[in-house]
């Protein structure tokens, strides 16, 4: 690794100046709020600083990485929402134990929601919310690897969230 090959600040500034219209259009396309866009730009620049040696075409690489950071921005926000939803459902399940009628109502509503999910997610979330299984136990009972269960759970929470807000948000779009 050659020390002298680190990009100079002038080179980085030149790169940004050249790319400014396309950077702005990327942020517009992904609807990144300005205050968050600055963080994304900073992260992409730091990645460039550390990886520049393997970057042959800085312009193309930078725009590609920025685009992925924008996708990651929304992915991270969705993850936060899934975690909040999961937490809230678990807390609801725990809280309604003292009140049999409330527990029955919640169970009924949850079942009707889960019934609308694909079988794999329905089984997983039923184990989680109605039988109180933790991740390793869920993995064992459904035949998944423990290491892979978190990813599957996240996908199922995503399906549950979309169903809960009854929206036609389609998986696999630019935001997924």
């Amino acid at each position: 690794m050659k020390v002298s090959s680190l990009p100079s600040n002038a080179a980085i500034e030149g790169l940004l100046e050249e790319l400014e219209p396309r950077i702005r259009s990327t942020f517009a396309r992904f609807q990144i709020p300005p205050q968050d866009a600055e963080d994304l730009l900073q992260q992409a620049l730091l990645v460039y600083l550390y990886k520049h040696e393997s970057v042959e075409s800085p312009e193309k690489w930078f725009l590609g990485t920025l685009r992925n950071r924008c996708l990651g921005y929304w992915r991270e926000r969705r993850r936060r929402l899934y975690t909040a939803l999961d937490q809230a459902i678990l807390e609801n399940v725990a809280a309604t134990k003292a009140n049999p009628q409330e527990a029955l109502d919640l169970q009924r509503d949850m079942r009707s929601l889960l019934d609308q999910l694909p079988g794999r997610c329905r089984n997983l979330l039923t184990l989680r919310y109605q039988e109180g299984c933790d991740a390793p136990e869920t993995a064992r009972r459904l035949g998944y690897k423990t290491s892979g269960i978190y990813k599957v759970t996240e996908r199922c929470l995503a399906a549950l969230t979309r169903r809960m807000v009854a929206c036609g948000i389609v998986e696999g779009g630019q935001d997924d």
Partner: peptide, 9 residues
């Protein structure tokens, strides 16, 4: 809730 679903749309 649907309006605030986190995605670029």
């Amino acid at each position: 809730a649907r309006l605030y679903y986190p995605c670029a749309r």
